[in-house]
């Protein structure tokens, strides 16, 4: 039997939730990688679910050290490859939004400052999904998490999402892209493109989390698509600081934000006036990223 897409880089049998948006995205990322890759993984759902000791789902050289230091571990791997004269092997970092937006930010900044040839992939679930859905720097306005619960006196998270793409661009990262689980081919293409770039690159993927977003098992891909259609999480691509592609093209008609929000338990408490505030965030995205 001819098999066209058998993926040996990330095996089944891992412990992620049924319908996990992050693992769906990770499968798409793996299709973009090749044999000459070493992965440094930060602590997070991706690490915990795929490497319950003594097993591993990975088929590539893969290392986990701590929550905050995946970027520094990658720098170390790159230094040793350089010492050995290995120019073929590329280093990839995988982390969640907690390890990227909050805990690992200092070391990521150092890695980018040194301009190292490392691809950093952030799986953005918009909360610390692994430890029990605490709010992170990536949690959007109005989302209910265990540390920002909604209630009579609370709308949920009152802070907006940290603009990690802008932080990457401010460091002069060569290739910066944003995508979602709803577009597997887009993820694979962006990973391939990032690998071909000489210098630091950053890809941020929105990954719907079943327990975190309080959605059904079969909704992760639909949510990823909906986030793009409502302009709340557009597909973006920057090369050398220039926006080269965006899902917010001329003539783009945004779907109402309520369509995306009302299907998620974490936003269920929002009233119409709150939703119109979030509509403004979508409009701000359209103004900022239109191409």
């Amino acid at each position: 039997m001819k098999n066209s897409n058998e993926n040996k880089f990330l095996s089944p049998g891992h412990n992620a939730c049924a319908g996990c948006g992050q693992l769906s995205a990770a499968q798409a990322v793996m299709r973009g990688l090749n044999e000459n890759i070493i992965i440094a993984n930060a602590t997070g759902c991706l690490e915990v679910t795929t490497t319950a000791y003594p097993q591993s789902a990975w088929g590539l050289p893969w290392i986990h050290s701590l929550f905050e230091n995946a970027a520094a571990v990658a720098s170390g791997i790159l230094a040793s490859l350089k010492q050995k004269g290995d120019k073929k092997t590329k280093v990839v970092v995988q982390a969640g939004d907690g390890g990227t937006f909050d805990i690992g930010l200092g070391l990521i900044s150092g890695m980018w400052e040194r301009g190292e040839n490392i691809l950093y992939i952030c799986y953005d679930t918009e909360a610390y999904s692994n430890t029990g859905i605490q709010a992170s720097g990536s949690t959007p306005y109005g989302a209910s998490t265990t540390t920002t619960p909604d209630g009579s006196a609370s709308i949920g998270s009152t802070q907006g999402k940290k603009d990690m793409l802008a932080i990457a661009l401010a460091h002069g990262v060569k290739y910066v892209a944003q995508t979602t689980t709803g577009f597997p081919d887009d993820i694979t293409n962006k990973v391939k493109k990032a690998l071909s770039v000489e210098g630091p690159s950053y890809i941020q993927i929105l990954c719907p989390c079943i327990p975190g977003w309080k959605i059904n098992n079969d909704q992760a891909v639909m949510m990823g698509k909906s986030a793009v259609q409502t302009a709340l999480y557009p597909l973006l691509e920057y090369s050398d600081g220039q926006l080269i592609s965006s899902s917010l093209k001329k003539g783009f008609q945004a779907r109402p934000a309520g369509e995306y929000l009302k299907n998620q338990g974490r936003f269920k408490h929002l009233k119409d006036k709150d939703i119109s505030l979030i509509e403004k965030l979508a409009q701000a995205n359209i103004d900022k990223y239109k191409i």
């Binding site: 001819k2 066209s4 993926n7 089944p12 049998g13 499968q27 793996m30 597997p184």
Partner: peptide, 16 residues
């Protein structure tokens, strides 16, 4: 092959 691409387990394989 969309199902094979989105499967979080990667347990759908395209074949003849």
């Amino acid at each position: 092959s969309l199902c094979a691409k989105i499967c979080p387990e990667g347990c759908i394989v395209m074949g003849e």
